[in-house]
Design a protein around this nucleic acid. Structure first.
Lengths: 150, 150
DNA sequence: TGACGATAGTTTCCTAGTCAACCATAGGAT
DNA sequence: ATCCTATGGTTGACTAGGAAACTATCGTCA
């Protein structure tokens, strides 16, 4: 360790380096299906609880309402979701996957599985388990609950 | 594992979640010193080899020439670097830290140390070593050499 | 010497976020 | 009934980066 620490002296540096590579590769894969990583996370979340309000999505995904609004616009244009008004509260909307959107989720999930396997498959099972356990522990220790999207 | 895999089923998800938290916290800390994470990486790189050409920086930092050009503009305005022409090749420039820029690097390095300690200090030494070793191994297996900046 | 391809940087356009200002509507409290 | 504040969502200004077009200069080769 030199007097002034190097970039690579930090665990955060390596974490980011690997994380960026994994994410960028995944982004490239889902781009082949015409969606972004944020759109995938949006759709996968909606898949479990459909319909959902934009603000609920924003909370779950750790994004601002503004970002969700624009993200929903893009998915609307792509015909993957629909936005309906609610009669009870005329301010609120409900977002819902279209048939096409629903059909795309398993395809994207398979890409996510592939990507994980491609990156972490090189690890011995023991190391992979250790890595997951340490990461979950770190997330736990910081009470992280925000879905990583970027 | 459900039929359609969940977001949190993937190691990449947890990696990104922790990585984002570490980076965002660090970004907040260096913002207190008036710089961004990309600017820190830029300055720390220049600190070891000064002066350097924009394209050399671009190669080391894994950013495009365009991004480096703009990044350098911002650091110039902040008075942290200078841009000089080279007499031999009138196309080329050399970027160099100012006295003020040089002085800021150890301060920022200390913040990076703090941030790493805050996040990974909770781990048992053995776990921390294991994490670093696994991450470096993954970087190695993919021949990752691009500095993570975003 | 002049043309032309390669190289160094900058600039322009685009994307995808944040933040904050901004409607519109809800739902009390008076 | 009418304010008044809180809430749901959209919009506009701004930021940081990538891709590709562009400008200027270099260096080679005829």
């Amino acid at each position: 360790m030199s007097a002034v620490s190097q970039l690579a002296d930090h665990t955060g540096f390596w974490l980011r380096m690997v994380s960026n590579a994994v994410s960028q590769d995944f982004a490239r894969k889902v781009a082949g299906q015409g969606v972004t990583v944020a759109e995938w996370a949006f759709m996968r979340t909606l898949y479990d609880q459909d319909p959902m309000s934009p603000s609920a999505l924003a909370g779950l995904m750790g994004m601002t309402k503004g970002a969700i609004s624009k993200l929903a616009d893009r998915l609307l244009v792509k015909g993957l979701i629909v936005r309906t008004e609610t009669p009870q509260d005329r301010r609120a909307h409900r977002l819902s996957l279209t048939v096409e959107g629903k059909a795309k989720v398993p395809v994207l999930a398979a890409l996510a599985d592939d990507n994980d396997a491609a990156y972490f498959g090189v690890l011995a099972k023991q190391d992979h388990d250790m890595l997951r356990s340490i990461l979950r522990g770190l997330a736990e220790s910081r009470s992280l609950k925000v879905m990583p999207v970027d």
